[in-house]
Nucleic acid binder design. Structure first.
Lengths: 149, 149
DNA sequence: AACAGGAATTAGACGTAGTTTAAATTTCTG
DNA sequence: CAGAAATTTAAACTACGTCTAATTCCTGTT
């Protein structure tokens, strides 16, 4: 596992600067929320986390900042749930388990996996990223839908 | 390529009945939209396709029907775009290219590919499905964001 | 044909994630 | 400090999808 420590404000500011982002108060708060805990959070959850004590950051800023972080390669979007996007502070190549029951995401290191037989991208296209999502669910809770067929 | 012919109303009705779905007029229209063209459509596009000539099917029915088709295993959801869900009439195991520029989805036969080193699902969990999405984009249009870092 | 009853459909109100806008505030620079 | 540029903000807005309650359709019975 990579050592993503709780990180101080100094370190967070440095991280932003290294990515060409002016470290404002709000951006530091958001960076802190994402990088201190090692989790996948939705914009909603980040907004809540940042304003836990006293409201100090607006919804617009959270969305602006996440988009900025995304462009600068600081975070990744994880699109697994039709109702919301998750932001992933882990940017090295990796994949995900997605727990359908709880909505929880679990990282899978890409090094452990091999994909062969990947077809080439269509003419004039380049592959930007390969995402593997394994949707999992509790063993006991069997869905009736399939059995009915 | 599997032979998904344009299919007559008779065949469509049969397909629905085999999946335990009462074939109503609206459901046949929707099935036809999905299965005659071999495409991935959003609910929006299906609504438009079905009502091309004269409006005859409501938004609520399109959503109801797609959910029903999903439960009965007639279609699959493809979640690649944060803003809308695509419905895929192809239910055999396969994966997708997702064209970030155009929003177009292209099937990749699962037989051609091999994934090794897939970790086991966490205790008490079963894998329901493995989705592989290859995000592609036009070669020429290079994004500046990565180079800036 | 009349009718009862359940399934399917519907318009329109609603909820919610995310975007936009225009103004206010902060930050930077000379 | 003045002025400009960048950032943040509240609030209005858009769009996908859901819900509700009423209506229509279908099927079997008499």
């Amino acid at each position: 596992m990579s050592p993503h420590c709780p990180l101080t404000r100094e370190e967070a500011a440095d991280l932003l600067r290294r990515h060409g982002i002016t470290p404002t108060h709000q951006r530091l708060e958001i960076a802190h929320a994402l990088f201190s805990r090692r989790q996948h959070l939705s914009a909603d959850q980040i907004l809540a986390a940042v304003n836990l004590r006293h409201s100090e950051t607006s919804k617009a800023t959270v969305y602006n900042t996440l988009k900025l972080f995304l462009e600068k390669g600081l975070v990744r979007e994880v699109i697994v749930d039709p109702s919301k996007v998750f932001y992933d502070p882990h940017t090295e190549p990796h994949h995900h388990f997605y727990n359908l029951a709880s909505g929880e995401l679990i990282d899978i290191d890409a090094e452990d996996m091999q994909v062969t037989g990947l077809p080439a991208a269509p003419a004039g296209m380049v592959a930007e990223r390969v995402d593997i999502i394994i949707r999992i669910r509790p063993e006991a809770t069997t869905q009736t839908a399939t059995r009915a067929a």
